[in-house]
């Protein structure tokens, strides 16, 4: 099989950039939401939980359309970003990153929530009696114990972002070099007769990336179980 062409390499690089930015964007948000859902007693938690999970069950094209309504040129969020910061998301890779972030959000919130649930809260109590305030307790006990789960969530979210298609193509279209990520490039190649080799190459890269992410995520989860062993006596 022939190696990747420069254009195909650019597609892979763009996909990695879009997903990397998406995860960086969505990680603090997911952690905050996971914390709210797992550790606090706020009213309307059921509704918040449902909203967080919406991108998981909605047709991605609907999520993309909703993003278009909110962040498009005439959408309230889109207009605000443009007027206040000069940022446009439409037809730009940043918009693709936002779509990927939204689609990765439910998966990441779920995974981080599970890892927080696994933290033995009695250890936080110990830290308090030893002189640590709530913040120090969080950074020295809760976060390190939840860390393998948080990393696994990041890897999982990253893999989801790499594969994102429906919301992206609806929201920011299929612009070569700007929003044409791996799945969009495969879709585009499929429309052109005689490009089976290109499709195969890109698809193989997709499979490799996804497999690597799943293995990494599984490995991190297992490691977390051993490291965070509750057995102390």
């Amino acid at each position: 099989m022939t190696p990747l062409s420069p254009v195909e390499w650019a597609v892979v690089a763009l996909s990695l950039k879009v997903s990397g930015v998406a995860i960086a964007l969505v990680l603090p948000v997911s952690f905050g939401l996971a914390w709210l859902l797992e550790r606090t007693r706020i009213p309307g938690k059921v509704v918040l939980d449902a909203l967080v999970h919406l991108p998981l069950v909605l047709p991605p094209v609907v999520t993309g359309w909703l993003l278009l309504l909110a962040f498009g040129a005439n959408g309230p969020a889109g207009r605000f970003l443009h007027d206040a910061f000069g940022i446009t998301l439409m037809f730009r890779w940043t918009g693709a990153a936002l779509a990927a972030a939204v689609m990765a959000l439910p998966l990441m919130v779920r995974a981080i929530r599970l890892s927080l649930e696994g933290v033995d809260r009695r250890l936080e109590v110990v830290a308090r009696t030893l002189g640590a305030g709530p913040w120090r307790t969080f950074f020295s006990v809760t976060l390190p114990l939840a860390m393998p789960g948080v990393l696994a969530a990041m890897v999982l979210g990253f893999a989801r972002s790499i594969g994102e298609f429906g919301a992206t193509i609806t929201f920011v279209s299929n612009v070569p070099g700007e929003t044409r990520t791996l799945p969009l490039a495969i879709y585009t190649a499929l429309q052109v007769p005689g490009s089976e080799a290109a499709v195969t190459r890109l698809a193989l890269i997709s499979v490799a990336l996804s497999l690597a992410a799943l293995v990494a995520s599984e490995w991190l989860t297992r490691r977390g179980k051993n490291g965070g062993r509750r057995h102390v006596l």
Binding site: R122, A127, G131, A132, G133, P144, G228
Partner: peptide
């Protein structure tokens, strides 16, 4: 007084060492 300011040395039944 919050727990972290009480300076109590609390020894628990099950040790509760920080596993990490």
């Amino acid at each position: 007084v919050p727990p972290e300011k009480r300076a109590c040395g609390y020894v628990f039944q099950d040790g509760r060492l920080f596993p990490h």
